[in-house]
Design a protein around this nucleic acid. Sequence first.
DNA 1: CGAATTATTGACGTTGTTCAATGGATGTGG
DNA 2: CCACATCCATTGAACAACGTCAATAATTCG
Lengths: 232, 232
Amino acid sequence: MNFCQACAVRNRAICADLDDTEIGLLNSIGRRRRIDAGEQLLWEGDDAVLVANVIEGVLKLSSETAAGKEQILGLAYPSDFLGRPFGETNSYGVEALVPTEICVFYRADFDRFAREHPKLEHRLLERTLSELDRTRRWMLLLGRMNAEQKLASFLLETAERLAPASCGFVPGGAPRRIELPLSRQQIADVLGLTIETVSRQFTRMKKDGLIGISGRRDITILDWQALADRAE
Amino acid sequence: MNFCQACAVRNRAICADLDDTEIGLLNSIGRRRRIDAGEQLLWEGDDAVLVANVIEGVLKLSSETAAGKEQILGLAYPSDFLGRPFGETNSYGVEALVPTEICVFYRADFDRFAREHPKLEHRLLERTLSELDRTRRWMLLLGRMNAEQKLASFLLETAERLAPASCGFVPGGAPRRIELPLSRQQIADVLGLTIETVSRQFTRMKKDGLIGISGRRDITILDWQALADRAE
DNA sequence: CGAATTATTGACGTTGTTCAATGGATGTGG
DNA sequence: CCACATCCATTGAACAACGTCAATAATTCG
């Protein structure tokens, strides 16, 4: 059977441009896999054996310093691509943050398929270019923003990426409740801060009426404009 | 006439896999251009009109916060690719740091050519994937390293990238003199620090015998191992 | 040679980290 | 269903690293 036809990210993932025959071929070399929250998919420094598409869930890409301090390098959401095609080793680890569903390939199979299907390579190129842009924007945050700006930026971006693309959501307007896919420690690891600093910033934003905090991971954005102002 | 045949980066740039006919075609849509040190090639936020290959020299990619603080997002050396194919706008500015020679294309022409030549797209994909890896490694530096580690890492990477690929240079061993392509301020902008902090770190490394400083931009790495130790 | 630019150095302030204690939530076994 | 253990988050106080401001020194360039 062919999973792809019913795939939730069929029109957004890198396979979107393939026709039925090609999809069938790709389907035959990939397989679905569920990953529990906290389960690791790829390890930093390992041989690059697998690549994957994210179908449902959220994963973190991360690396650590010799001293053991972690830095989260990026988050992967549905339709994002994971792993290092045409590469030797994984330069970062990948771990699911919530229960996640992916579509995995052996890198060797994927590489071969990709080289034979320029349409797929083109989509992958576009996606990689976008990811590079996003990553560079994140560098500005890490290098030049203070704790308040970092957290405000993080909340805005998370709200945006969590909104299903289909629902035509635009930031701003009404209060919006979001369920954070990350713990406080992980947020700290994304922003290059400590957990204490993150916690203090949350408390302050709540006190100032920018956000509401209902549960550890349950945040409501009350004042978009004020949040955006603090992000710059 | 066809510049490509005599091009210094003919075997390393994204055009390396093209045959003579294809190179001829590519040559006809591109042109050589010299850029002075300090001259800007692309502006952050502008429409993405141009893309280019670096032939000789060094350029910086940079972005700034609303408050006007600059962050250098990356450096481009010979054979690197510049600009945003298949994109709308430049998400960062590009400026030459030293007298530089590039091979420019109108993005529209380049995009069309690329879509018709999967070999070129493949090279561009490999390069973009490598650049993404490099950029993510830099995020670890920005987010989790202190000033000393940042500067040590910067010096090591600069020494490596400045060494002509041909000469089989490996870090370590004998003292090595390098001419920094960046001012102190620019180094600060790469590392997410201030010029004063960079200056103090330089002074300290010199005092500790790790490096020699002959002129503002003229550094000799005296003790590779000690420098590598401080980088982690 | 002198002006302008860039870098260094010092004194001081601020932000975020570190260390330590407390608080709140979640889950398990009795 | 409660008691307890565990985990995660919050809060406070002291400290260190880096930033800021200001003065001086060294280069570069006309």
